[in-house]
Design a protein around this nucleic acid. Structure first.
Lengths: 96, 96
DNA sequence: TTTATATGTGAACAAATATTCATATATAAG
DNA sequence: CTTATATATGAATATTTGTTCACATATAAA
């Protein structure tokens, strides 16, 4: 595998490697949510969420739809859930 | 899911989120390797590899066995390969 | 015990990154 | 056009993190 591909792969995993973003992903596993709701659930500011959503969009982890002034975000891809779950499994197993 | 679990999950993904470590993981998908070999393959110093291997050990991503003065590292868990592969699939799909 | 080889580690520096704050933009309603 | 609401963004700051360098440790052979 080429160095460049491996670099991109590391960049991709960086997106999961932050607790704010992983909380956003976790919340979106349940249902689509707007920025305001995400801020409440995650427990941070609207601005912080918006910054992180930009990263999640750029990495194609979330998609969104607009409804009047509200923008609803949801997970873009089934791989996201798969990877999230595999991570959970690993953590469960090592803590047995 | 609890905040603490989500925090741990983000910590876990941080391990994949660095190009040196992902190169180490990629190399170990093929076969077990010693520190010196890893340094050559990855293209960095023995010290840098050793530092990163410590992180990989702490996260239970690699295991090792000693043979005289040489220490051979290998992947510890099938989840590692699964997660690696899912990441690859995602990247392939978004670049189509 | 001395020497050689392989690996581990602490401190320091540089680079990357998340949040905060203030402000900007976008959409819809009046 | 003005106002209200929801979201986005730029700059600054603080924190985290990876590598380098020098040195320490571990194992085995002489």
């Amino acid at each position: 595998m080429k160095d460049e591909e491996l670099y991109d792969l590391a960049e991709f995993f960086k997106v999961f490697a932050d607790s704010t973003r992983i909380k956003i992903i976790s919340a979106l596993l349940e249902r689509e949510l707007c920025v305001f709701e995400l801020a409440e659930i995650v427990g941070t500011t609207q601005s912080a969420i918006s910054h992180q959503l930009r990263i999640l969009k750029q990495s194609h982890l979330v998609k969104f739809r607009r409804e009047k002034t509200t923008i609803y975000y949801s997970l873009d891809d089934d791989h996201i859930k798969d990877i999230f779950m595999k991570g959970r499994e690993h953590i469960e197993e090592i803590s047995l």
